[in-house]
Computed example of a mutant assay.
Amino acid sequence: MRGDNSQSIGAGRVVTVFGGSGFVGRYVVRALARDGWRVRVACRRPDLAFHLQPLGGVGQVMAVQANLRHPDSVAAALRGAEAVVNLVGILAETGAQKFASVQAGGARAVAEAAKTAGISNFVHISAIGADPQSRSAYGRSKAEGEAAARGAIPSAIILRPSIIFGPEDDFFNRFATMARYFPVVPIVGGQTKFQPVYVGDVAEAVAAALKGRANAGETYELGGPEVKSFAELIDYVLKVTERRRRVLKLSFGIGKLVAAFTQLFTTLSLGLFPRLLRMTRDQVELLKKDNVVSEAAKAECRTLEGLGIRPQSIEAIVPTYLYRYRETGQYQAQRLSA
């Protein structure tokens, strides 16, 4: 079941979305605008968020400048708002963007500012794998961000998605690009399981939470209808893109060694080392654990289905954007029939 089309849910009220100009953000903004919210997108570069304005009516979506390191700008972004969504997060550390400052400190800054502003309708996006005992800095920082959000606002709703996919994703697109240019596709942790979730479903979960469909103070785990191993997902990419490539399955030990070299080359090249080939030791550590919805979350209905959302499958969505990686793109069918 998808979100309804009512324009009265938000009733012109203001919701501030931190990190709304990114991949997940554009879908969240669209879902909230559809529900009638006036969406204020708080980001460091408002001039790069103009693409969000057509997602709502005239004047319904507005970008404002906010830096999580500057409390005054965060407070200003929340002025007059009745709800807050925090989407800020990074997949790897670069320069001054560290896990501790962005995913832990950033969540704390937004939650404390929301508390000061008297806002209790708060949705925080975390990730499956958030764990204060994790050997991964990413996993620990996500858990710290959750604790900070819940500490400031006990009623905060936390959403933990598995790998998020969609037309602009950095998972299926990345490996499809590798398959286009290289004869070998290397992966670490081929047996690690994932439960990819469509970005539109994550946005619907945010909208549902702000509508009051989620239980206050609960943590929801978001996954799609299929659980597949890393190797199975790569095989699927090769099938959809119609590429014959060898999948090189590296052990975690070799993976960490390769990651150490790519991190070194990235530093020595001042960031010019191809992003497509980058991998970090922290990412390898994350791959040691399955990234799927827990049995506890299923039993307690803390899932997409529990929010009244029927998750989309990768088969229904992924081919609609991976076709462009085929040898002749959208004209492949014509070539085969010629």
Rank of each mutant, 00 (worst) to 15 (best):
residue 262 T to A: 00
residue 257 L to P: 04
residue 250 L to V: 01
residue 257 L to V: 11
residue 249 K to C: 10
residue 233 L to T: 01
residue 239 K to T: 14
residue 236 Y to E: 08
residue 256 K to Q: 12
residue 232 E to K: 07
residue 255 G to I: 10
residue 261 F to H: 01
residue 254 I to K: 01
residue 247 V to L: 15
residue 262 T to V: 04
residue 246 R to A: 10
residue 237 V to I: 15
residue 235 D to M: 12
residue 241 T to A: 13
residue 240 V to F: 07
residue 251 S to R: 12
residue 257 L to S: 08
residue 239 K to I: 12
residue 237 V to Y: 12
residue 262 T to L: 03
residue 252 F to Q: 05
residue 252 F to T: 00
residue 257 L to E: 04
residue 258 V to P: 03
residue 246 R to W: 13
residue 255 G to S: 05
residue 258 V to F: 05
residue 247 V to H: 14
residue 262 T to S: 07
residue 242 E to Y: 05
residue 238 L to R: 09
residue 235 D to F: 14
residue 245 R to M: 12
residue 235 D to A: 13
residue 259 A to I: 03
residue 250 L to D: 01
residue 260 A to T: 07
residue 248 L to H: 09
residue 253 G to L: 08
residue 262 T to C: 02
residue 255 G to E: 02
residue 256 K to A: 08
residue 243 R to F: 03
residue 249 K to E: 04
residue 262 T to R: 01
residue 234 I to N: 10
residue 247 V to K: 15
residue 261 F to W: 13
residue 235 D to I: 11
residue 247 V to D: 11
residue 234 I to L: 14
residue 249 K to Q: 15
residue 250 L to Q: 03
residue 259 A to W: 11
residue 245 R to N: 02
residue 243 R to I: 02
residue 261 F to N: 09
residue 260 A to Q: 07
residue 231 A to M: 05
residue 255 G to T: 01
residue 261 F to K: 07
residue 234 I to M: 12
residue 231 A to L: 15
residue 237 V to S: 15
residue 250 L to Y: 04
residue 232 E to M: 12
residue 262 T to I: 08
residue 250 L to C: 01
residue 253 G to N: 09
residue 260 A to N: 02
residue 261 F to G: 00
